[in-house]
Amino acid sequence: MLLLTFSDIGLIVTLVIIAAGLGLILKLALKGKEIDRRIIFIFIFFSVASPIIFQIKFSEKATAVVKSIYDKIDNLPEGSKILISFDFDPAMAPEVQPMAIVLGRHALIKGHEVVFMSLWTTGQSLLTEIINEYILPDFPEKQEFIDYVTLGFKAGNEGVLKVIATDFKKMFPVDNNGRPLDSIPIFDGVKSCSDFDLVISIGGGKPGPKEWILFVTDPSNIPMAVGVAAVIAPQMYPYYPAQVLGIMGGVKGAAEYESEFIGNYERFKDMKTPGLLTMGPQTLAHTVIMAFIIIGNIIYFRKRKKEAKS
């Protein structure tokens, strides 16, 4: 017998309602009735809200641009040094926070030494929240200063990058808690960003991934990966694969990484996957938007035909 889960029933109900609604709109539109824009808003709201309530998930498969980041972290020898910069604010967080969480988990489970920092003022509180509430509870064995360290926010935008590209401790004499970097084991042998085996910038504004490429990783040939808000993802592609080894574009990139990660690590099989969960509403909302584009075009061409006749 076919067993339907709660999500499946939700999906079916949602699809039926949306299809019926769209059909009705198409019928009204063909009759020549103006469709109020607020109707579109209601559809989008419904198609986003319903998958959230029913926790509808679709499967994802990592594409080459995302897989290359995953493989890089997976294949680095244990104890490699990774620098992750959280260059975003709460407004961008729903898109890029899932990337930050899954990257942090992956780097720690592989036994790498991770340094977290931020170039955005508002990144500081997000940094603390993400590390303390999402990443560390899964790794009680990891010790601060030995396995990871939080440098926090540093003002100066590109200026900070320009300096840390050659002299890390000049810009960050102390960590987030005021502890001198010279006394932190992770920074043994770290003089500049060149001493990291991988640099990852997660963000989407300025300063962000682009500035990291221009001022730090491209000049010194440091392996660089970026996780960016969807809006600027197309602007990152020219750097791939020569100047960045991989790109996670928007929540789709995050979802792909998550699915790769939970697929390979039994321990995290049941972890929360905000990226994958966001892809449910995304898929439905995109379908609705596409339907509206098609309806709009049908109406437009019919109108044009009529005008041409008259």
Binding site: I44, F45, A49, P94, V231, G249, V251, T278
Partner: peptide, 17 residues
């Protein structure tokens, strides 16, 4: 670029909802 932007905005809406 536009498609990506739509995705970005929907993500933000998902965040708020």
């Amino acid at each position: 670029s536009f498609g990506y932007t739509v995705m970005g905005r929907i993500s933000l809406l998902v965040g708020r909802i």
